[in-house]
Every structure is written in structure tokens, then in C-alpha cells.
């Protein structure tokens, strides 16, 4: 099966699926239960996407599905068969950090760093949504990403800075 081919037309428990991750097509055999998070981390070894709560409540697993931010832990891999996923590993180009990564570094927008890939992917998703980027809007629209270290002040500053630079 190629990455765009159809899935079986009757209920099944195992699937050969295609995922286009950071522009590269992958084929993999998955159980129906395999979440996108499991597929990325355990099968494709893209461990930048983090597992936090596994219940969609912390945002550590945020990735982009065709440009829109989603929780990879609430997504079955089979449900995104043939579709384009962007993870934290896919946003730098030719060794240059993505402007949102640069802004997080410049503003020291993290402490332990565990939530940071999700924060950055969520912030890129936010800017894709073409909203205003005043502080209140950023705080509200970044609320799906929890930071136990409490680096929120610098996260907001980084997102504002990246937005102002047209990230």
C-alpha cells in the first residue's frame, strides 16, 4: 500500500498505514489502538514530541496536522493515514532554527524544557490561525499547553516577539 492508498473497507484491528511526517513518507504496520503519539515516538523514533498526560490535558504532544495544531495523544494513527504531520523535528530548515525556536531561546522561555516542543508547535499553530497577538489573546490561545515550571511569562514574550517578526 502506498501512503495514500485506501484502508480496508471492513473493520480490522491491524493496518498498514502511510504517514507523511515532516515531508517524508513513512509506511508502518499499526494496531488500531496505536495513537499518533505512539507512532511518532515508538515507531518513527521522533521523540521530540512528548508524552505528558495522554489525555489531551497538557499539550506536550502538540503537533501540526496539515498546519493545524492537534493533540497527538488523542489521535489514532490510523485516523491520519495518508496525511501530513509536522513535529518539532521538522521546523528547522537547513540547520537554521525556526524563528519561533529562536524566540524561545532568546527569551529563555523554558526551564526544564519538557513542555517546550509542544509549546513551540502550539505557538506556530497559533500564528497559522491569523489571530491578533496581544498578550491576552496569546495567553488564552496558548492555554492548551501546561508548563509545570511556570515559564509562562517568557513563553508569552517569545510568542509575541516571533509574531511581531512575522514568524
Amino acid at each position: 500500500m502506498d501512503s495514500q492508498g485506501p484502508l480496508p473497507s471492513t473493520p480490522a484491528s491491524r493496518f498498514d498505514i502511510g504517514l507523511i511526517v515532516n515531508g517524508t513518507s513513512h509506511r508502518l504496520a499499526v494496531d488500531a489502538r496505536t495513537t499518533l503519539l505512539d507512532a511518532l515516538r515508538d515507531r518513527l523514533h521522533l521523540t521530540g514530541t512528548k508524552r505528558g498526560c495522554d489525555l489531551g490535558q497538557c499539550g506536550a504532544c502538540t503537533v501540526l496536522l496539515e498546519g493545524r495544531r492537534i493533540n497527538a495523544c488523542l489521535t489514532l494513527a490510523v485516523m491520519v493515514h495518508g496525511r501530513a504531520i509536522t513535529t518539532i523535528e521538522g521546523i528547522a530548515t537547513d540547520g537554521e532554527l525556526h524563528p519561533m525556536q529562536t524566540a524561545f531561546v532568546q527569551h529563555d522561555a523554558f526551564q526544564c524544557g519538557y513542555c517546550t516542543p509542544g509549546q513551540i508547535m502550539s505557538a506556530i499553530g497559533l500564528l497559522n490561525e491569523s489571530r491578533t497577538t496581544d498578550e491576552a489573546t496569546i495567553r488564552e490561545h496558548m492555554s492548551g499547553n501546561i508548563c509545570r515550571c511556570g515559564a509562562y511569562t517568557n513563553i508569552v514574550a517569545a510568542v509575541r516577539d516571533a509574531a511581531a517578526r512575522g514568524s
Binding site: 489531551g56 495544531r69 492537534i70 493533540n71 488523542l74 502550539s122 499553530g125 488564552e140 492555554s143 499547553n145
Partner: peptide, 12 residues
């Protein structure tokens, strides 16, 4: 809707 869940969840 704006006060429902998180932006990620609302996209899904």
C-alpha cells in the same frame, strides 16, 4: 465555544 477546552481540542 471560545471558552471550550483548548485550541488543540477545538481543532479536533
Amino acid at each position: 465555544l471560545q471558552e471550550t477546552a483548548s485550541p488543540q481540542v477545538r481543532n479536533m
